[in-house]
Write a protein that binds this DNA or RNA. Structure first.
Lengths: 184, 184
DNA sequence: GGGCAAACGGAACAAGGTTCCGCATGTTGG
DNA sequence: CCAACATGCGGAACCTTGTTCCGTTTGCCC
């Protein structure tokens, strides 16, 4: 049972939708209405739901590449020769950069609204193991306390990034760096 | 121009609404629908809006006492004889306890949805100066770095508390304590 | 008791996510 | 090349939730 062959128009539409969604997310944030994305892609709303069962799945699809890149960066940093703590710090920076530049993503990540479990689960499943490896290495090297687990740290960092974009009195990056400093 | 005298039924309804809202918030979280609160109080939805111009105002009214108590605790802690850093830490603990026990409050605090500016503004206006005093004292005593301002710290702590209630893999209190440790 | 401003209830509206279904259109066997 | 039909499409309709509006009710004061 390999993947079903889709009709050509269906594949084209899926493509358009991903492009449109990416553009709208940049312009209006991740919380942009589904109708706007459909309009931008030149399709009906029903078409979105045939390709992506829920808004969250669309978001996951749009950012999948970047999440994968972030996940891949973890092991690479660990093997790059710097200390485990420095690797952890750099990796967290990557993650924060990713979140902070995606208008509203962090906010929607923590949302417990129905339908966002997919999004949440994907991020956690993909990134927690990577973070865990970095934490374990730094812990084993005696550079940080060992009583903070990867899930908690990832969610904490994600939470700190919420709202970072529309308030210049709030400096998420600095707070994250304070938090990581507190791990020592 | 002292406050207008309200009709007896109006006063009674405002009372019922506050009670009902408090009860519903405990049972179903701060994000419970306005209609549920109205039903519980035995009034129409219009009545809510006559007393509280928006959902956020109702939330503020319900928690005003506790916020005031938290604000008052700041100066008290500073004068209690412990070091400024210990006072800061204790005060943050109070704030975290407050947030973590109010299902969904932290999340809504962060929300940039229209209509929640009131809520946001109230919390910040009331608590930031208190936090600022504690930070300044600890900074002057040379116990912490001085490049993190009160607004940022308050929002960071608030953010860390988001989602603390429905996920036992996430330990908001521990993260906050790591963050405060990172201030040293 | 009567008049009137204050307050009320809940229907109606707006906005956003999601579902549904009649119609259109690729695809494929002949 | 054509016809048959499964696949996919559009967008109206539905649901939930915040908010507004307005005809009706009710407390207060004389």
């Amino acid at each position: 049972m390999n993947e079903r062959i889709k009709r050509a128009d269906a594949r084209r539409n899926e493509e358009s939708l991903l492009d449109a969604a990416a553009a709208v997310f940049v312009a209006a944030g991740v919380e942009a209405p589904v109708r706007d994305i459909a309009a931008r892609a030149g399709v009906g709303t029903g078409t979105i739901y045939r390709h992506f069962p829920t808004r969250a799945d669309l978001i996951v699809a749009v950012y999948r590449h970047q999440v994968e890149a972030c996940a891949a960066a973890g092991p690479a940093l660990l093997e790059s020769g710097v200390t485990p703590y420095a690797a952890l710090r750099s990796w967290i920076d990557l993650f924060v950069d990713f979140l902070v530049t995606k208008h509203g993503l962090a906010g929607v990540l923590r949302s417990d609204q129905a339908g966002f479990e997919t999004l949440h689960a994907y991020f956690l499943d993909r990134l927690v193991p990577v973070c865990g490896a970095l934490l374990a290495a730094a812990g084993a090297a005696g550079q940080i306390r060992t009583d903070v687990d990867a899930v908690t740290l990832m969610r904490g960092v994600g939470n700190l990034c919420i709202g970072a974009e529309n308030d210049d009195r709030y400096d998420a990056r600095k707070l994250v760096s304070v938090l990581i400093a507190g791990l020592r």
